[in-house]
Design a protein around this nucleic acid. Structure first.
Lengths: 221, 221
DNA sequence: TAGATTGTTAATCGATTAACAATC
DNA sequence: TAGATTGTTAATCGATTAACAATC
């Protein structure tokens, strides 16, 4: 019950609340910032203060996955970063595809933040003949019909979907048929998720709507 | 206690959970889809089924804000759309600014989904002399130093922040100083939020991380 | 040792679901 | 009327916080 040196990050026995996982990403981002600032260790109270959560919340979130802290000391930043990456699955490299090389798709291909977190674009797909055969940000653009072949060749498990709403469901179905396991969906539409596929949805207009509500109801509701 | 015809959407007396507001946006999106499909009314159970929430949840969420439904009938789609827009604050037009005309910023300026939801870009800002003075997607690009002047002239209340992480805090502070009330922040960094300002954060790498976790722990955790 | 801080238990708080009288 | 569906209450479930013994 008390291993001493390199703590195991065994999987959790209880199911992990989604809110915990999303805070894990915030902890990771802040920890990397702390390391750049020169911190070796950090306490749950200081990490919580920076992110606007309680110290108890930080400790409980992390305790879902193992014993990462040192009583009297806090958490060693580098060590905790590695542990969280392992938990999130980003200690490994992911081969990622983009579907939909429009305005947004191009920006995503050029987004510098993905590479450092372990995500590498290996292919982009579109149905526009003018785009097929080109390279965008060093990533080759294929016709959508070549999805199965390319997915297999690169062992692509995740895809970013940045196509118009009307085409999104079909694209997701085709991705599922190829064995792609997760999609980050930017299309502003409800997707009927194929079994054994995971989705994270990002609807930019909805995010702005949430902001609008917050501003209109500031300190009131 | 029982007005009959056009129901008032009075503000809620209790504080509204954030989760409720985010589902409100999903209801709105689905309702607009339903209208395009030709539906006049929708029941809480059918709306919930489409979005993967219970019927009780739908009714309770909406009941926070008023009596929008008709027993025996359900909700009138058009009427509910208007009510939700009023609640979210998107029945009005918002003048919006973009700060940071990079890859992502350009894509945001060109994103078609904002206009329909009541958000209109009136100005973009950057510090790069090569960009200042140009137009992107019909939106003029000003030097960041002209922020106070332009914000005042256009009564800009919301801003999208798409600058590198290192510059984000300063940009947010300058926006706050101009009286901007809310930011949609794409910079992958914790912002120390000025009082009386609202933030919604979108970290694209974090969204992918969440997907990675979901895939790795599918049906396990 | 004294001081700091963890991991964990119990207590609190809040959100979701089930059930049903009221309504059309 | 009978059937459908709401709004709301009470019951359940889950997540957050407070407190503290254990640890370094």
């Amino acid at each position: 019950m008390s291993d001493s040196k390199p703590r195991p990050s065994a999987g959790p026995s209880e199911p992990v609340p989604k809110a915990v996982v999303s805070r894990l990403s915030l902890y990771l981002r802040e920890l990397e910032h702390l390391v750049r600032e020169g911190h070796e260790t950090i306490s749950s109270s200081e990490l919580g203060r920076r992110l606007g959560v309680t110290d108890a919340q930080v400790r409980k979130d992390l305790a879902f996955f193992g014993h990462f802290g040192y009583p009297g000391i806090g958490y060693r930043c580098e060590e905790l970063i590695l542990a969280i990456k392992r938990i999130l699955g980003t200690d490994q490299q992911w081969a990622v595809a983009l579907v939909g090389v429009g305005n947004l798709g191009r920006a995503l291909l050029g987004y510098k933040g993905f590479a450092h977190r372990g995500f590498r674009f290996v292919a982009a797909f579109d149905v526009d003949a003018a785009k097929v055969g080109t390279e965008v940000e060093g990533v080759p653009v294929y016709h959508l019909d070549r999805l199965p072949e390319i997915v297999r060749a690169h062992r692509i498990r995740l895809a970013l979907v940045a196509v118009p709403a009307a085409g999104a469901q079909l694209v997701v179905d085709r991705l599922a048929a190829c064995g792609v396991e997760g999609i980050l969906n930017f299309a502003p539409v409800t997707i009927n998720l194929p079994p054994a596929m995971c989705q994270v949805g990002v609807d930019l207009a909805i995010e702005l709507e949430q902001l609008s509500f917050a501003v209109v109801n500031r300190q009131a509701g």
